[in-house]
Amino acid sequence: MDSSRADTSERLFSYGTLQLEAVQRQTFGRKLEGAADQLVGYGQTMLQITDPAVLATSGKSHHPMVASTGNPADRVDGTVFAITHAELMHADAYEVADYRRDSVLLASGVRAWVYVDARSPAS
């Protein structure tokens, strides 16, 4: 196994473009393996992307964005990935300033990082 990926101690939940193989290969240099999960107590909207690098990587002008609603009935489907700390830093570099990385507890009971609306209150 590649030693740079031997320690996949970070968990990252994606509900948007980080689930796309092309974005993963550009951002992490590999296709990620993940499992379906849900973000509980969050709602989803769309954000217009203007960053040329992100537009080129994702091929999409609008990306999903989530914010806490506080309502446990609200759920956002996505995928949880096991990644390295270095890969998490690459994900931080990919996301535009409109997003903030928060630690959340997913429906499965897994604790993971997720990118949320930077204007929303911290969880």
Rank of each mutant, 00 (worst) to 15 (best):
M1T: 08
D2A: 05
D2R: 06
D2E: 06
S3E: 10
S4Y: 00
A6S: 11
A6V: 11
T8E: 13
S9P: 00
R11H: 10
L12Q: 08
L12G: 09
S14Q: 05
Y15I: 06
Y15A: 10
T17Y: 01
T17E: 02
T17M: 04
T17D: 02
L18S: 11
L18H: 09
Q19C: 15
Q19F: 02
L20F: 03
E21F: 01
E21G: 00
A22C: 15
V23A: 11
V23I: 04
Q26E: 12
F28C: 08
F28L: 05
G29Y: 04
K31V: 15
G34A: 03
A35I: 07
A36C: 03
D37N: 10
D37L: 06
D37Q: 12
L39S: 05
G41Q: 12
G41A: 13
G43S: 14
T45F: 08
M46R: 13
L47Y: 13
Q48P: 09
I49R: 05
I49D: 08
A53R: 14
V54M: 15
V54C: 08
S58P: 05
S58N: 07
S58W: 04
G59A: 12
K60N: 11
K60Y: 09
K60Q: 15
H62I: 03
H62T: 14
H63Q: 07
P64A: 07
P64Q: 14
P64Y: 10
P64W: 02
M65T: 13
V66C: 07
V66P: 03
V66T: 13
S68P: 02
G70Q: 11
P72A: 13
A73M: 07
D77I: 04
T79Y: 03
A82P: 00
T84Q: 12
T84F: 07
T84Y: 04
H85V: 05
A86Y: 00
A86V: 07
E87W: 01
L88Q: 11
L88F: 12
L88E: 05
H90T: 08
H90R: 13
A91C: 15
A91T: 09
D92R: 06
E95L: 12
D98A: 15
Y99L: 08
R101P: 03
S103R: 12
V104Y: 02
L105A: 14
L105Q: 12
L106T: 09
S108W: 05
G109E: 09
G109I: 11
V110H: 06
V110L: 15
A112C: 06
A112F: 01
A112G: 10
W113K: 05
V114N: 04
V114T: 15
A118Y: 00
A122T: 14
